[in-house]
């Protein structure tokens, strides 16, 4: 138990510090790196809670895919650090108000939060031993049966977002040269090679 508590404090302290560094770091690439650190440590917190599937998915999805794309974009920005410093005070009031509104909303939501009666009944039930039923299995059983419509809806939203992103950004430029594998495969020697008999001493 002591080791778990120590691990909890380690992970949570690093998460909080990294999260603060995300918004306070001057260099955007450093911000993304701190964001990754925060994601990674919150995955550690999930492991401590016994939610190992969520932890791994957190690392695969957020750290392995989303943050890579962030990094990809941010690395290519040409950032002037002095300019960033100027903008900080200018945007502070607006950003502060937005942050405050969000904080108030969070407080309201957290204040009015109650468990549904169905869930509170479950608290009394004995917690299954983790070795009996795998975390992933339990999650799969509930997602694909009880919440299947929500699951499908989430999938469709992601699909729409994906198609939207492609439609918005894709443009076919003129004059680009593309490799068409089918054309290359369908080429026959007869179409392209002409064999000529050349008599000695004269050209074609």
């Amino acid at each position: 138990m002591v080791i778990q508590a120590l691990a909890f404090y380690l992970f949570s302290i690093i998460t909080v510090v990294a999260a603060v560094m995300v918004i306070s770091a001057r260099n955007p690439v450093h911000s993304v790196l701190f964001l990754i650190l925060a994601f990674f440590n919150s995955a550690g917190l999930f492991v401590l809670l016994g939610a190992e599937f969520l932890a791994m998915v957190m690392v695969v999805v957020y750290v392995g895919a989303v943050a890579v794309l962030f990094m990809f974009v941010v690395m290519m920005l040409d950032v002037n650090i002095a300019e960033l410093r100027q903008g900080f005070l200018q945007y502070l009031p607006l950003g502060g108000i937005v942050g405050l509104v969000l904080l108030m909303e969070l407080a309201v939501v957290a204040g009015g939060f109650v468990f549904s009666p169905e869930v509170s009944e479950r608290f009394a039930a004995p917690i299954p031993v983790p070795s009996d039923i795998a975390n992933t299995e339990a999650l799969g059983n509930i997602i694909y049966t009880k919440y299947v419509y929500f699951f499908q809806a989430a999938g469709i939203i992601l699909l729409v977002a994906m198609i939207g992103a492609i439609v918005l950004t894709h443009r076919s430029r003129e004059g680009t040269r593309k490799q068409r594998i089918s054309n290359q495969v369908n080429r026959r020697p007869e179409d392209t090679i002409e064999i000529k008999k050349v008599s000695t001493g004269s050209g074609i």
């Binding site: 690392v59 392995g64 990809f72």
Partner: peptide
Amino acid sequence: NINVGVLYLFAISSLGVYGVLMAGW
């Protein structure tokens, strides 16, 4: 011997890209 061993491997191998990205940048 964890129950999500495959996912752990997949997660760690997906982190490998950061070493290269950080070095490149």
